[in-house]
Write a protein that binds this DNA or RNA. Structure first.
Lengths: 168, 168
DNA sequence: GTATTTTTTTAGGCACGCCTTACTTATTAT
DNA sequence: ATAATAAGTAAGGCGTGCCTAAAAAAATAC
């Protein structure tokens, strides 16, 4: 039995690609996958054979490619991770959507599930309770641009002392 | 000229290992590195030759292994990333230190530099301005355990309505 | 219905990074 | 000093995942 943890990063990418292409066109063809992942068609064939062998996709040479039920469950998990990461990067860290998407692609295979769950929870928290958490504009975003502007900030007092010492 | 971006994940691991071992013992030996990374001694040799060729370490057979200046700069960058990630996971997301360390090991090679910088900034912000940001105990940690407890929370009103409808 | 084009597959190759086995070099103990 | 042990190297293998080039199959055009 194959679980999501048995898949390599590239196999996850293939499954993810098939999932997205299938959403649009009912079934994927090797050509679409190659284009989506920017690899040669011949590289796709090998990957498809493996995914087929693991019964994650319905694969027969020259035939249309679809996800099996098992494959769809795993593909959805992968897509969920990607979206969760991207949302976190945008909503919490204020990364530009495009950059966040690119970063999520790079990171998604290497972030443990437990961490993803926490990111989701955190993003949800910030989203849900902007007063308790951090709303980007007024909180972290402002800090990024202007630093700490709290006159009574205890930490800043310390830093100012250090600054003064340097100036002497 | 070799930059940090030219290193594979495993080369980064080797450099990181040498850095940490050197901190304790002045110089590293292949055996220590093999143990540190849980890899066979013979696997270490090849990696050392490459790092040596790139002038990131001073390497001569049977001799002690030390970082070159160039190597130390890169190693410090790698360690910085690891620590930044770990700090973020612990301080912001409330992950247990050990889990955070393990996750950081898995993630550190795949998080773009720009994202690391943002994580650092965010952790700094939360650390610096717990009032504006989120202190773990009172903010996100509490939310994780009890959910939203704000009586006047607009979002929760919506959710309660949904809940009520379900109960009907 | 054959010819052309597109799509897919096969075959063979390369780089990486790890492994094992066999060998060489150093160190340590007696 | 030499035997035993520890440490390091060389050579060759394996799996992954990509590539190119060329053959085979399918789709399309005439």
């Amino acid at each position: 039995m194959v679980s999501i943890d048995d898949l390599s990063a590239s196999q996850e990418d293939y499954l993810e690609a098939i999932f997205h292409i299938s959403e649009e066109k009912m079934a994927a063809r090797a050509k679409d996958i190659a284009k989506y992942l920017d690899v040669k068609a011949s590289s796709v064939t090998g990957a498809l054979r493996i995914l087929g062998k693991h019964e994650l996709i319905n694969y027969a040479p020259y035939d249309l490619i679809t996800l099996t039920d098992k494959g769809r469950v795993i593909a959805e998990e992968i897509v969920y991770r990607h979206r969760a990461l991207e949302k976190f990067l945008v909503k919490v860290l204020g990364i530009e959507r495009e950059d966040a998407d690119a970063a999520a692609c790079k990171m998604e295979h290497h972030v443990p599930k437990a961490i993803i769950e926490r990111l989701v929870k955190y993003a949800e928290y910030v989203d849900h309770c902007p007063r308790g958490g951090v709303s980007w504009e007024s909180g972290f975003g402002y800090y990024c641009k202007h630093g700490c502007t709290d006159q009574d900030c205890e930490r800043c007092v310390g830093e100012m002392e250090i600054q003064s010492q340097k100036l002497v």
